[in-house]
Each structure stands twice: as C-alpha cells, then as structure tokens.
Nucleic acid binder design. Structure first.
Lengths: 209, 209, 209, 209
DNA sequence: TATGAATGAGTGTTCATTCAT
DNA sequence: GATGAATGAACACTCATTCAT
C-alpha cells in the first residue's frame, strides 16, 4: 500500500514536467507554430508519452491555461490574506500583475491565446464553459477588494466588477503594445514607469477626495 | 480607349473583393487557422486566382493590416481637420476607436494578430520594419493632438507619446476582454459604457484643474 | 487572292517567333522548369496566343526538336554538296557539330532532352515514331559520307552506321561533361582542343595505313 | 542490450529501401516528373515516412547520386587493387562502366540528371560543391591508372586527365544514344559490340607502337 | 486573331495522432 | 508505462490549359 499514492504522485509530477516544457514552447512559438515534437524534446520525453498524459494538443494547452489562472488566483488570495487596507491590497494586486508577467512571461502569453480570434472553434463548449467559470472566479476575487474599499469609503461608489474590468483592461493594454513592439523588434524600457503612472491616474479617479 | 483604365479599375476591384473575403476569414479563424482555400471560397474564386493578386498568404495578411492602419489614419486626419479644440479632438479619436471596432470588427481583429507570440517569425524583417513605420506614423498623429492640448494649457505637461500609449493601451485592453468573453460565448453590452467612463477617468487625470 | 498566302506567311512567322523564344527558355531552364508564361513573356505575346499556334507545351517542345534536327540536316547537306573528298567532308561534319553547339547552345540543349529518362512517358507513340524517323534520316546522311570514304579505300571497311554512332557518341560525350561541369560551376576551356584530338584519334583508327 | 545497434541497423535498412524505391522512380520518370508520392508508393510506405529519413526531395536525389558515385569508386578501387598492368586495369574499368550501366541502369540514369540543363537551379551551391568534389575524386582515380601506363611506357605521354575525360565522354556518348533510342522505343543489341570496338580504337591511338 | 484572367488538379512538405514493440 | 516510427490528412503554392471579351 502507498503504491497507489506513489503512482498518483509520479503521474502528477510527470504532468507538471510536461506543462513546464509546454509553457516554454507555446510561449515562444505560439499555439499554432508549436509542435508536439517541440514539447516532447523540451520535456526530454517522447511524443507518445505526452499523449499518455494529455489527450490532445488542445487539452495540453487548456491545462496550461488553468495552471496560469490558478497561479493568479493564489497570488491574489495571498494578498487578500495580508489584512492590509483594501486600497493597498489593490495596489499590490496591480503590482502582482506586473510581476507575474515579468516573472512568467511565457505563462502570461499563454493567457493571451484566449484572445486569438478563431480559437473557440477548436475548443469544446464544455471547455469554454470551464474557462469561463474560472476566469469569473478570479475576477470576482479582485472585485471583493474593490467592493471593500468602497464599503470603507476609500473609493467612490461604482459597480466593482466594472472597475476590475477596467483595471485588467488597462493592464492587458499596457503590456500588449509592449509585446507587440517586441514583436516588431523594439524593446521598451518605460513599461514599468507607464504601469505605475497608469495606476495612479486611474486610482485617483476612484478615490474620494 | 479607356481599356487600360478599365483594366486597372477591375484589378483594384478584384483586390478589394479578395481583401474583403480575407478580412472575414482571417477575422473569424485567425491567421494560422485560416486557409487560402477558405479565402478563395469566401471570395467565390479559385485558389489560383488569389495568387494572381497576392504573392503569398503573408502578403495578403499584410495588405489587410496596412488597409486597417490606413483607415485608422484617415479617420484621425479627418478629426484633426475639423478645427475643434484639441481635447474635443481627442475625445473624438477615442470615440472613433470604438466606432471602428464596432463597424469593422474583423478588420480590428486583424490588427490584433500582431500581438500573437511567434507571429513575427513568419514575417520578413523588411515587412516588420514597414509595419513599424506605419504604426509609428499613426501614433505620432494622435500625439500631436495631445501635445496641442498641453501647449494650450488644457492638459498638464507630460510626454505626449506616453499619454497616447496609455490611451491606446486602455482601448485595446477594454476591447480585448470583451472579445475574449465573446470567444467564451458571453456577449457584453456594457462595453460602450465602460469605454466612455474609462476616457472620462483618464482624461480627468490629465486636465489642469 | 494572295491573302491566303499572306496569312500562311504570317502564321509561319509567328510560329518561328514563338520557337525562338521557346528555345531560349527551354534551353535555360530545362523542360520541366520552364513555364508557358516564361515563353510568352520572352516572345512578347500572351499565353493564350501561344496556344493558338501550339496545342500544348509538349507539342511546342517537339517542334523545337524538329527544328534543331532540320537545321542539323541542312548543315550536313550543305557539306555534302561541296564535292570535297569524303574524309574532309567527315571532318567538316565533325567541326559542324562543334560549331553548332557553340552557336546555338540552347538549341543543342533541346536535343538533349530526348535523353531525359521519363520523357517518353509524356510523348505520344506517334510523336516518338516521327522523332525516330527524322533522327534516322540525319544519321543515314552522315553514314553515306563514311560509306563513300570506305568505297574509295580511304577508310577500312566497317559498318558505316556503327562508325557514325561512335562519332556522335563521342561528340555527345565530349560536350556533356563540359555542360555538366558548367552545371557544377566550372568552365572548361579545353573543350575545343579535346574535340580536335578526339577526332584525330578516332579517324586514325579508321584510316587505311 | 544491442537495442541501439538494432535501431541503427533498421534505420539504415529503411534508408536503403527508400533509396531502392527512389532509384526506380527517378530512373523511370526523371527528377521532375517523379513525385514523392510515387516514391512512397514504390517503397510501400506513406509520404510522411519518407520525410523521416530524407529532409527533401532534393536530399533524396542527392543521396542516390552519392550512392552511385560511391559504388563507382569502389568498383574502380577494387580493380586498382588487383595489381594487374595499368593497361589491363584500364580495360577493366572500361568494362566496369559497361557492366555497371547494365546492372544498375536506373542508378546510372541518376548520374545523368546532372546533365539536365536547369537542374543546378534546384540544388544548393553547397550541394553542387560537394558533388563536384566527389566527381573529381573518381576521375583522379582513373587518371592514376592512365598515368601509370604512361610512366611504364605503355601509353604515349599525354595529360592523363584529358584521356580520362575522353574515355568517359565516349562512354557517356555511347550509352546515351542507346538510351535515347530506348526512349524512342527501339532496343539496340549492338551496344556491347560498339563498346568493345570503341575502346580498342581509342586505346590504339594511345599505345606506343 | 489576340488577350490574360481564371481555373483546379497536382506538388513538396508538415504535423497531430496512433500503435506495435 | 514508455517509445518513436508510421501515418495521412492538410496546407501553401504552381502552372498548363481554357475561354469570355
């Protein structure tokens, strides 16, 4: 006994090793241009083995997506557990977005695939539903911080979910062009600056003065 | 007489018909998943015919990109020609972004492909350079509006280009999640609202009070 | 009246113009890599027009072949009409081969296509038969010169046709490697020398001493 | 144990099976008209599998070429190792040419593709260079035999390389028309005879009398 | 008669997925 | 479980041939 547990543990470890490899490859080449062969090579496994753990390329991708979302979620929860004031928590979340993108650029990129037009055509409705639910979960987590700030009279009253949408929008929007310009061969050093200013501006509009 | 002119006119018309079809297909399926066969079917032409007008799939895509950029540019120029005060011009540009995305959603999506990781690997350096130049041209157009507003003391002094980056970021960010959620099968009706509020907030931070 | 004659004359002229263009193109690129578009461009005509004069790419190629053979034939006949002694005539023919290949390299190359494996697959039996007959005609012309030299006791007695085969073989063999090396990027200047020596050697074996 | 070795052995066997199929197909249809599908069908494999062993059609063709050259080389080396007198060695080489062409007609034909005009356009400079080097290697091997015969006073003094060129030329020339006539649907039985006579003639011119 | 735009079958090549070992 | 050789359906692109003008 305990054998089963070991089996499960090993299986999970394998899956994570494959995911780690896949994040690199998908992040580098994009979903379409990445091949299962690439992933296998990166993971130092054979193609066949990948298929023992993931039914298809798509499923592998989706698992990465869930992984990223999960990591985000955990980061936010940790911030919420600090007991800081809501506005400082929000600032931390904002910074966490930035740090995440910097620390796990490939993982961040995986999130972006969702925005590719035509992607849903390849994903099953059930999968889409699941993605949806998980995304909503993360959003509502941040919403709770914003709502708290409003309840405490730190921020003016708004629909908290709208504020979160805006924040996330701004963040995506800030990073995207930076990525694009990287695509175009230009590096941008002012992203960090821009990122800070953007928050200050936006939060300024929120605060009760 | 006039035969040559007719030829030229017809050729241009054909190219536009192909572009129209391509925008649909690329917009729906994305660059990688779209096939030349798809485009041909949509245009009610044969594959070979497409290649009479565009040398490659890439060239076809790039032509769409340039078309979009050009249209953006013209929209902005028209606004600048109105002689309105710079801050009202900026508001109009902001609204124009929104209207454009609403009116030509597929064309707008074409712009987004640039942000796909791994895309540049498929484009020639020369093409990337050209894209770059054209993008910069559009950005500097809006920058001039912002700079004018600062010169007139309407806005506080900032680096105009940074402000434009921020605006564009916010816009992209606002639309992206909306698109994503559309991907996920949810329609969002509050985008218009959010779009208006976002501008008010951001501009508020800019204005000299 | 006379109109018909003019028509015929013009048609022949067109055909020749097309042939001239085709020889260039086929000679440069080889049969497979040459396109009808290439030929049309070279002839400053439209593709459609070519098809008014030749039913297919193959037929065009065959017409070039016949043209080359005819030219060879005429050259040999001219030499035979000089009334020179048969051995001097043979020397002249040998030199003519060389001169022809130098003067009309493209036309010469067209002759070589016959040796491409797989070519017959594309040619109709009737065409093959016709090519055959014409080739034989040229060979027998030279055979008559050799036979005359034997009859006059200048050369030892052999099967004349075999001798001609050998001569032609040697010639082809001499030029081919030169072409090959040109293919490989090396130019050979000694071909002319080799060509002269080869004849002297071979003829030496033929002469009654 | 031995697994790796078996793998290597099997891989080599597969490659050879594909080569065998390719020689048939290329020999029959020529380089351009042969398709990878043809090769796959002949090898009783799928197209994809061919590409597991050869990167491209060109590489497959070049491998056949090198194979042929190598086989030629080995044949010549075996003759040189006999210790026979140089003139008898040369006779053997000459016979070997003939035997080779008879035994491996398709393989022989593969060598001829090099002479197709326009072929080099499809081959990379690096490949051409390599072909060049290997061809030269084979030629210089035979040159050494001829040079030895001259050194021993059996043959008159000439540039050995020129003599070899001539021999090879003659051989090619002899076989080509035979091939051509086969193309044209005629079989020739006198080739063997012609082949013998041609050598006698040529060598006669070489010998010190 | 001349045009050249349109066609569509065909080509080399890639890659997600399967399966015998 | 693990492997990686094999598969075959796609895909981008070409080009001989046709036909409306």
């Amino acid at each position: 006994m305990g054998t089963l547990q070991r089996k499960v543990r090993e299986r999970r470890a394998r899956r994570q090793a494959i995911q780690a490899a896949a994040v690199q490859v998908f992040g580098d080449k994009g979903y379409s241009r990445a091949t299962m062969e690439d992933v296998a090579r990166q993971a130092e496994l054979s193609v066949g083995t990948i298929y023992l753990y993931y039914r298809s390329k798509e499923e592998l991708y989706v698992s990465l997506l869930f992984e990223s979302m999960q990591r985000f979620r955990e980061g936010i929860e940790k911030i919420m557990a600090t007991g800081l004031s809501p506005d400082r928590q929000l600032k931390r979340v904002w910074d966490y977005f930035y740090a995440y993108h910097l620390r796990y650029p490939q993982s961040y990129r995986v999130l972006l695939f969702l925005q590719q037009p035509g992607l849903p055509a390849g994903l099953s409705p059930k999968t889409l539903q699941e993605i949806n639910v998980r995304a909503a979960r993360n959003f509502s987590l941040v919403s709770r911080i914003v709502a708290a700030a409003m309840a405490k009279g730190i921020y003016r009253s708004h629909e908290p979910r709208e504020v979160v949408d805006l924040l996330w929008s701004l963040f995506l929007g800030l990073v995207h062009p930076a990525e694009t310009r990287q695509n175009l061969g230009i590096t941008i050093s002012t992203l960090r600056d821009l990122h800070r200013k953007a928050f200050r501006w936006l939060e300024d509009g929120l605060r009760v003065k």
